[in-house]
Simulated scan of single mutants.
Amino acid sequence: MARACPGDSGIEVIAVGVGPALAAAGTASALTAAALRGEPYRLVVSAGIGGGFQPGAPLGSLVVADGIVAADLGAETEDGFVPVTELGFGTVRHQPPADLVRRVAEAAGARTGAVLTVSTVTGTAARAAALRERHPTALAEAMEGFGVAEAAAAQGVPVLEIRAISNPVGPRDRAAWRIPDALAALTEGFGKLTAVLEGWNRHDS
């Protein structure tokens, strides 16, 4: 889900779908349409639920990304995974505005750390450990943030990612998921940070 602040009209909610490709396409379409109307967005927020790396991001907690990272964009080699940047092209990380991250985290009572974007949800302890080894500051994984960030960056719009933790990153256990609790935490968190986002929209962007 992408949240954006066009002009001075407040906060708009747009569902962009599952996965980085669909999220990027939906976000790009919304940004382009708004720009053509003469009402460009000033901020894009990718918000939703995700997996949390334990014990840093317990179930029901909120995470605000200080880095939005494409965790599986690259190549597998005999020596392990190589990110696309080391192959000589592309990017694998977007940096949200540090001051906005701090203010949002304080307002919502959230933790800050990297949020990893993956195309395949982690389902084993081995993959969870490998991701943490490559990204030691990671607190969460989800499937849309990097796609949203790529679309926003292409049009020069700042981006933020917020995740409510519904399940641990690791062995897949649907019985352990707490999706209603995560959605409730996300709703409560946005209730606390609306003024921060609107203030950014009016003044800081």
Rank of each mutant, 00 (worst) to 15 (best):
E12L: 15
S29E: 05
A184Q: 12
I162P: 04
G60K: 02
V115K: 03
A30M: 09
Q155A: 14
E133G: 12
E161G: 03
A154D: 02
A152M: 12
A153V: 00
T194F: 07
I165Q: 11
L139I: 01
L59G: 01
E86R: 14
G189N: 05
G38V: 13
D8V: 13
P55W: 13
P58A: 10
A4E: 10
A105K: 01
Q54C: 01
L183I: 12
L22R: 07
N201P: 12
K192Y: 07
D99V: 03
A151E: 00
T27W: 07
V121K: 06
P97D: 06
T91Y: 06
V44N: 03
P136D: 11
D181R: 04
A185F: 05
S29K: 08
G56L: 15
I165N: 15
T122I: 03
S119R: 14
L31C: 03
S46N: 08
L139F: 01
A30D: 09
G50T: 04
L36F: 10
R132V: 10
V18G: 01
P158N: 12
A125G: 10
T85K: 07
Q95H: 12
T27H: 08
M1I: 08
G48I: 01
S9M: 08
L197V: 02
A128T: 03
G17A: 03
L100R: 09
S46P: 07
F89V: 12
I179T: 13
M143G: 00
R132H: 09
H203P: 15
V82S: 14
R174Q: 15
L22V: 04
T194S: 06
A182H: 02
M143Y: 01
G48P: 05
A151D: 00
L62Y: 11
H135R: 04
R202E: 10
Q54F: 04
W177P: 05
V64C: 11
L36M: 14
A140H: 01
A195G: 14
R174K: 13
G38D: 04
A126L: 08
G109S: 15
V13F: 10
